[in-house]
Structures are given as C-alpha cells and as structure tokens.
Amino acid sequence: MEFLTAYLTANNIIFFILAAIILVFGFLSVTTTKILRAATYLFFVLFAIAGLYLLLSYEFIAAVQLSVYAGGIVVLLVFAILLVKNLGEETEKVSCQKKLVSAIAAISGVVISLVTLFGFGFQNNESADELTANVNMETIGQTLMGVDKYQYLLPFEAASVFLLACIIGSVVVATNLKKEDKK
C-alpha cells in the first residue's frame, strides 16, 4: 500500500496516461492493416510525446515536436498515402511466420535492453528543484546562435544548408523530368 501511494503523485499519473497512449497507439500503428489509420495512430503517438516533453518542462522542444512532427510530417505522410494508394485500400496480409520472427526479434531486444537498464542502477536526484526549472527562450537562442563551448551555431547553419539541399533533392526526385522530356 505504501508503495502504491508513493507512486501516485500527479506527475506520475500524467506520465502513466501519456505512456499508455504512446504504447497503445504505437502498437496499433504498426499492426493495423489500413495504412491511413496507421498514420492517424502515429499522430496520436507524436502528440503524446510532445506531452512528455511538457512534463519535463521543456516547452520549446514540445512546440517543435508539435509543429514539425504532428503538424508537418504526419500531414506529409497522409498526402503521400492519398497520392499513392486508393483510400481505404488494405496492405497485404503478413504471414504468421514473419510476424513470429519479428516478434521474437523485438521481444529479445526489449529483454536485453531492460536487463542492461535495470542492471545499471540509476541514482535518482532527490533535490528536484533543478529538474523542474524552465529553460527560457533567451538561453535557447543564445545556445543556438553562439560559437563558444556548448553553443551550436555551426550545426544550426549546417542544418539550414541541409534542409535546402533536401528541398531541391526531393523536388528533383519527385518531378521526374527526364521521362516527360522524352514524351
């Protein structure tokens, strides 16, 4: 009983709700046969992960998660599904043997990781004021834009060039110019 009340704080209850959403919808997202439904379940998973970041009081990365993942990538995936397949069309049936092999691979991975994780013995910091302190936007901006140690101007600029290259590359790949010239 004491064990139970020790774990029933507000933070833990919110965490368990978010974890349940993430795991249930994540599992549904990889097992459902309708691909559009899988995209919807993926959306819920990404949304709940943003909630997890808020629980850690990292607001900015939660906002980035919502706008880039839940707002951008899922919409892109839905567009791709609608462009590629007819709506509601099911994917092929997966053979039982393949499911079994994948499940064995995944479960053995989980067991190995969890044994390693609990064998490590993390020390939980009890003076928790530091852990709930917010990171303000000024700190984030200076960390992104500075050139000192623990500041990240170079990756930031590299990311902008990288995104530009990806935009050009995906346009070139998706438009398929050569074929239309021949016609």
Partner: peptide, 24 residues
C-alpha cells in the same frame, strides 16, 4: 517504443509503413 518501431520495420511490406516505423 523503440522495439515497437523495430517490429513494425520488420513486419511491414508497405514503404510508407516502414517510414512510419522509422519515425517511431
């Protein structure tokens, strides 16, 4: 969550489904 993604990555046949598993 990681190994749910790994399971999906192996079991899916659809390219978009594999992409979703990578997102997980």
């Amino acid at each position: 969550l990681f190994f749910i993604g790994v399971y999906g990555f192996i079991v899916r046949k659809n390219l978009i489904g594999i992409l979703m598993s990578i997102e997980l």
